[in-house]
Simulated assay, not measured.
Amino acid sequence: MKMIKVEDAIGTMLSHDVTQIIPGKFKGRAFKKGHIIRAEDIEKLLSIGKDNVYVWEPKEGELHENDAAKRISDLVVGEGVDTAEEIKEGKIDFFAARDGLLKIDKENLFKLNSLGEIIVSTLHNNTPIKKGEKIGATRVIPLIIDENKIIEAEEVIKNSIISVKEITPKKVVVITTGNELYYGRIKDAFLPIIEKKLNEYGSSVLNKIILPDDKDRINLEIKKAIEEGADMIICTGGMSVDPDDVTPNAIKECGAKLVVYGSPVLPGAMFLLAYHEDMPILGVPSCAMYSKRTVLDLVLPRLLADEKLTLNDIVAYGHGGLCLDCNICNFPHCSFGK
């Protein structure tokens, strides 16, 4: 790469994108890499502070920022991710190729960004994503980078870092408990909320049962739902530690393996998760009726993406597990659960 005065650059080829900034109005590319400079370009180049331009003179063992970014992109992108067709100012953007759950290999992302001169930026791991949504980007810092740096990255990173996991529709049985509901004293507020959240991910309620606070009857209906082929069971109501709240014990005694009862998430502390083989059984606390977002919003997309959550997965939500109940909810693009 050779630097020459703008006035002497007519007929030469730009080796990099030239950015123009108009404060408060515009920031973007004024001239594209590969542009052949014309006489009429000189005035504009000078007006944006370019007294000199750089002409690309390839040398063995060196890579232009665009070529390096393409190799990094090929290294980090996995299933369910599209890359921008055009490289702008040495940067490649990544987009979701489908609706799903964003998965980031945080350990390898840290390793890659620790190498120096290479950056990859992403949204948070486990963020529910819509097709076409921007989820990350990469670029190298210098205009020209030693190819050995890229080779080092390719040797360190053996698996993709960014992917979008597919969420598949599920048949869900909802079991709502409470004497006040069973005897018609109040209207069930749980079901419309659960249905709405399931519908966001293409799933639906297969069956809905309202039961009194009767451990044996709850246990029986859970077993029945299992036998009839439900993909997931969500139990609502009766999840606190009051003596007449029997839902947790009913779940524990149905033959399922308990993962956790109690989560470091607010709202959602009294959340329960168990598995009957690979089928999740959830105990959802009453906060789901009146809070916009709760622990259910954090675990549901992961379960619908067929992740089998562990105690460690739930415990990890303590960092970021406080919902601020903002007047305008921007979930999932907020701090909750991150």
Rank of each mutant, 00 (worst) to 15 (best):
T176W: 03
G229L: 08
K27H: 09
L63V: 06
P264E: 09
T127S: 00
E195Q: 10
G11W: 15
S291C: 15
D297M: 05
L101Q: 00
F110W: 13
V246S: 07
A316L: 13
L206K: 09
L102Q: 00
K50C: 10
A30D: 12
E43V: 11
A68L: 12
P280R: 03
E89M: 12
D242W: 13
A274C: 08
V284F: 05
A30R: 12
L46R: 14
E85H: 13
I118A: 02
N179A: 06
L102G: 00
M232I: 05
V265T: 06
L75P: 04
N66A: 15
M13L: 15
P142W: 10
Y275C: 03
K111Y: 12
I72E: 05
P58R: 07
T310A: 11
R98F: 01
G283L: 06
K91P: 02
K224R: 14
F271Q: 02
P301D: 00
L296H: 02
I328F: 13
D67M: 13
Y275H: 04
S291I: 10
D99R: 01
K338Q: 08
G132N: 09
I314L: 15
V53R: 05
I48W: 11
K59E: 12
G100A: 08
I135F: 01
R185D: 13
I72Y: 05
D313A: 04
K27G: 08
K149Y: 12
I157T: 15
E117K: 14
M270E: 05
A84L: 06
D51S: 14
G100K: 01
N207S: 11
I135C: 01
V156D: 14
D51E: 15
S15W: 08
T177M: 04
H35T: 14
I135K: 00
P301Q: 01
A256E: 03
S73C: 14
L206C: 06
L181V: 08
P169G: 07
P192E: 13
D216N: 11
C323F: 02
K131N: 06
K171E: 09
D297K: 01
P301H: 00
G238L: 09
G202Y: 01
I141R: 14
